[in-house]
């Protein structure tokens, strides 16, 4: 159970970063940290003690216990989506930097127009 709690703590670190930081790049970093903790939580749920990877090969042990393939299939696509979304956030950040000359979200709010 401690593993679940530590994984959730990693999620909370990312959440704290999103709420308190003002730098856009730091916000993107916190976002990716939250994403990673969610991926890890899915993989942790699917784990079976003494299990083998869910791939049928010729030299499997007798009566193999497979790890659950369903959470792995869900996470596999989500990782690639995470790359694309964080690249999009970075594109917005660099666009804002080129327009206003700062990464500070509060300053950007004041300089609107």
């Amino acid at each position: 159970m401690t593993v679940y709690f530590m994984c959730f703590f990693l999620f909370l670190v990312g959440l704290y970063g999103i709420v308190t930081r003002r730098n856009l790049i730091k916000i993107v970093i916190s976002f990716t940290i939250m994403e990673f903790s969610v991926f890890l939580f899915f993989a942790l749920i699917g784990y079976v003690e003494n299990g083998v990877a869910p791939i049928l090969t010729k030299n499997l042990p007798e009566n193999p216990v497979f790890v659950d393939p369903l959470p792995q299939a869900m996470v596999l696509t989500a990782i690639v989506i995470g790359l694309a979304t964080s690249a999009m956030l970075l594109a917005i950040a660099i666009r804002l930097y080129k327009k206003y000359g700062t990464f500070d979200i509060r300053e950007i709010n004041n300089l609107r127009g």
């Binding site: 790359l83 694309a84 690249a87 999009m88 970075l90 594109a91 660099i94 666009r95």
Partner: peptide
């Protein structure tokens, strides 16, 4: 998709 994103950033 990944190459498009990367090229867009470089061209910008």
């Amino acid at each position: 998709a990944i190459i498009t994103i990367f090229l867009a950033l470089i061209i910008f």
